[in-house]
């Protein structure tokens, strides 16, 4: 009887094994929605790259961007800088959400965002400003 029960347990165990295998696979990031957001961010990068390099805009620790010190930007261009930062953050928020939903796990959004946050900062070029635990630092 006990053996039978143990057999059941084993059977149950193997039934749930495939779920763990799925979790180890690649994340889906090729949906049209993700491509569209990526395209929009790509187009904006030409404008933002100069601001990353000058230190006007920095990469925040939560996977977003922020105006850090706009004093090097002429006054008349600061409105456009602000709009670009706001639009970039809207796209980033949407990107994290979209990746989570595309993989069938909307609840993963915070983890995806924090994964991105550290990868953006790791991949930032030297000279760019990134937000550490203690505030802004230059790479």
């Amino acid at each position: 009887m006990k053996k039978l029960l143990a057999g059941f347990v084993l059977l149950f165990g193997t039934l749930f094994l495939p779920q763990l295998v799925i979790a180890a696979a690649d994340l889906e990031v090729n949906t049209p929605a993700i491509s569209a957001i990526k395209g929009s961010m790509q187009a904006r990068h030409g404008q933002l790259a100069a601001h990353y390099a000058s230190g006007a805009v920095g990469l925040t620790k939560d996977g977003m961007v922020a105006v850090r010190d706009a004093n090097s930007v002429p006054l008349k261009d600061r409105g456009a800088l602000n709009s670009a930062v706001a639009a970039e953050n809207a796209d980033r928020a949407k990107l994290y959400k979209e990746i989570a939903t595309a993989n069938g796990h909307p609840e993963w959004q915070p983890e995806i965002q924090s994964t991105f946050a550290s990868r953006w900062i790791d991949k930032a070029q030297s000279g760019w400003w990134v937000q550490g635990a203690g505030g802004w630092v230059q790479k």
Partner: peptide, 19 residues
Amino acid sequence: IYFPAAAAEKAADKIIDDV
């Protein structure tokens, strides 16, 4: 289903490289 950290990192790298 635990968050696939390695896969997420790989996906992030790919997107960041593109952007």
